[in-house]
Design a protein around this nucleic acid. Structure first.
Lengths: 144, 144
DNA sequence: ACAAATCTTGATTAACTCACTCGGAATTAT
DNA sequence: ATAATTCCGAGTGAGTTAATCAAGATTTGT
C-alpha cells in the first residue's frame, strides 16, 4: 500500500511545473533544488513523464521541461500509473492492468472474497486519484 | 499500492479459520492445501497473527490453530497492518505509524500537497478495511 | 567554428524487500 | 518411546528501489 519515492518525486516535480505552466520552462536542477530531489534520479522521472506524453523538453542551453497539457487535464492517477504501475492493490482487480490471479482457489469463480473487498479499495483509491488534477494539487499550495 | 502475498495468504487463511470458528481447529497443512499456500510460508503468517493476539494454537498431535476473537471483531485493516504494516501510502499521513517525511520542502508547513491528497487516500482505504470484518469477508463466500 | 550548458540514453550498483525454504527445538497424544 | 505438530531463527535467490555514473546528442552564446 505504498507510494514509491519515484512517484512522490514525480508529483512534486509536476507541482513545480504546474506553478510555472504558461510562464516558463524549468530545468532539472531548478526542480531538484526546490524540491530536494536527487538530480540524476529526477532526470529519469522527467524522462518517463515525457515519454508518456505529459511533458515537453528542449535540450541545450536555455533548455528545460514544461507541461504539455493543461494542469486541469492531468490527474494524479495518471501520473502514479506511469511511474508506479497500477493503482489496484492486487492484479485481479486492476482495470488498467488486469491479471488473473493464479494459485487462488477462487480464481475461476466469480466471487472471490479477496477480489471483492480489494475491488472496492481500488475503486476508492482511483475515485480520488483519477479526479484529482494537478490544478487541484497545486491550489492547496498556492493558497497556503 | 500493492497488497503483499503475505497479507493475501493471511486473509485467505483467516477465511478458513472463520469458517471453522466455534467448530474445530485447523492445522497449517489443511489451510495450506485448501487455499494453495506454501505451508512453511503460511506458518510464518499464522505465527505473526498469533503473536498479534488473533489466533490461539496447540502444539503436538491434534494441534492446530483457531481464532481467538469472534470474526465480527476482527477487521481486514487490522490483519493487513499486522502483516504488511501501515495502510497509509506514505509515512507522513499514517495514523497508526506516523513518520515525519524528511527531505520534503513542506515537511514543516501544515499544508503539504502530497500529504493532503494522500491523507484522503489513506482515509478511503482505512474507511473500507477498518469496517470490513472477517464475518463480512466470509459471508461473500458462504453465499456464493 | 567553438565552448558551454543542457537534455538523452544506457549501464551499473548498493541496499533493501519479498516470497519463500530449511533445520531443529519444544510440545502433545498415543 | 514415537509420531505429529507447532515454534523459532536463520538463510536464500530473485526482484525492486533509489539512486549514480559515463558518454552522447542538441541547442545557445560568443
Amino acid at each position: 500500500m505504498k507510494l514509491s519515492k519515484k512517484s512522490e518525486y514525480g508529483l512534486r516535480a509536476l507541482l513545480e511545473l504546474t506553478l510555472a505552466h504558461g510562464k516558463m520552462t524549468l530545468q532539472r536542477h531548478q526542480i531538484a533544488t526546490r524540491q530536494h530531489i536527487p538530480v540524476e534520479f529526477l532526470e529519469q522521472i522527467l524522462l518517463a513523464l515525457k515519454r508518456a506524453g505529459l511533458l515537453s523538453s528542449r535540450r541545450g542551453m536555455k533548455g528545460g521541461y514544461a507541461l504539455i497539457k493543461s494542469p486541469g487535464e492531468i490527474t494524479l492517477g495518471q501520473v502514479i500509473r506511469i511511474l508506479d504501475g497500477p493503482l489496484a492493490p492486487i492484479g485481479c482487480v486492476s482495470k488498467t492492468a488486469y491479471q488473473k490471479c493464479r494459485d487462488c482457489p477462487y480464481s475461476e469463480q466469480a466471487q472471490c472474497p479477496v477480489q471483492h473487498v480489494m475491488g472496492s479499495v481500488r475503486d476508492a483509491i482511483a475515485g480520488i486519484l483519477d479526479h484529482y488534477t494537478l490544478d487541484d494539487f497545486a491550489s492547496g499550495y498556492r493558497k497556503g
